[in-house]
């Protein structure tokens, strides 16, 4: 049985054992927006290890996205700190390409065609004299967009747009990929295909992925670690670790998958009752 809820002690032990693999650690991070009365996020403690597929699972509005945006510096926290033990994974002016972000919606620029949308980060890097490899066609091939280079976003389906968005995130050759419910607007088959592809790409590129979602199935299928969140204010409720478990090819259809889905689902229910 690979899936375990981690106790505080086990969590600490995990941190000590895997210290060399730790790439990011949130310690007591809180966030209060000026426009709201209460804290949106309260005392978030969270670790990201190298080559993790980490899911942050929670209902809408619990602050999942805010955690991601704080990790890549789009939003500043009001309390606590985010540690990056080595500078190899954090974005900085010397090395802006370590982290990439896939938004909830494709977020393409409608006035640029597919090729230019994917190239945009490299263009910005180059102008700011940061070296960036031109591997646009490799990436276009990787996400299956060959032949669509000249298309404009309005000519693309939702799934295709998402592929462009993923390609744009990968073109900078990041080490960490932050994904904010990237497939929530897609139909089930597309979502299945794309999540399968993300797993493949993650393996191929040795990526670390932090994945925010409200889908229990998706989080169990994709990740080796899951943080379940509760809302008002957003807090980590429970942490699951199934790193030591092999996922078979047809994992999605095994009894094991359903069992684990139920465990995580129960946890999420308890989290909602605890609010």
């Amino acid at each position: 049985m690979g899936l375990r809820i981690l106790s505080e002690k086990e969590r600490q032990k995990n941190i000590d054992d895997n210290e060399s693999n730790l790439i990011a650690q949130l310690q007591g991070v809180s966030k209060k927006f000026k426009s709201t009365k209460n804290e949106s996020l309260h005392d978030i403690n969270l670790e990201v290890y190298q080559e993790d597929f980490l899911s942050i699972l929670g209902s809408s509005g619990c602050g999942k996205t805010t955690i991601l945006k704080m990790m890549c510096g789009l939003i500043k926290s009001t309390a606590g700190k985010i540690n990056w033990p080595t500078s190899n994974f954090q974005n900085s002016s010397e090395n802006p390409a370590n982290l990439s972000f896939v938004f909830q919606e494709p977020n393409l620029l409608p006035w640029m065609n597919v090729y230019d949308n994917i190239k945009l980060p490299l263009k910005i890097y180059k102008e700011n004299s940061y070296k960036a490899d031109e591997n646009i066609y490799d990436i276009i091939k990787l996400v299956g967009l060959e032949g669509f280079e000249e298309y404009y976003p309005r000519q693309l389906s939702g799934g295709m747009s998402m592929r462009v968005s993923i390609a744009r995130a990968l073109v900078t050759q990041p080490k960490v990929l932050l994904m904010d419910e990237p497939f929530s607007a897609l139909d089930e088959t597309r979502r299945f295909d794309l999540s399968q592809e993300i797993l493949k790409i993650k393996k191929e590129k040795k990526l670390t992925v932090v994945y925010v979602t409200h889908s229990i199935y998706e989080s169990v299928f994709l990740s080796n670690r899951i943080y379940v969140m509760q809302s008002n204010p957003g807090k980590i409720f429970e942490e699951f670790d199934f790193s030591n478990q092999e996922k078979p090819e047809d994992y999605r259809f095994t009894p094991q998958f359903f069992e684990q889905t139920k465990i995580v689902s129960d946890s999420l229910k308890r989290a909602q009752n605890a609010e």
């Binding site: 890549c72 789009l74 977020n107």
Partner: peptide, 15 residues
């Protein structure tokens, strides 16, 4: 969301 995208890649105000 477009501004966030550009800021993510470290774009300056002129870019």
């Amino acid at each position: 969301k477009h501004l966030e995208l550009l800021r993510l890649y470290g774009a300056n105000k002129y870019q």
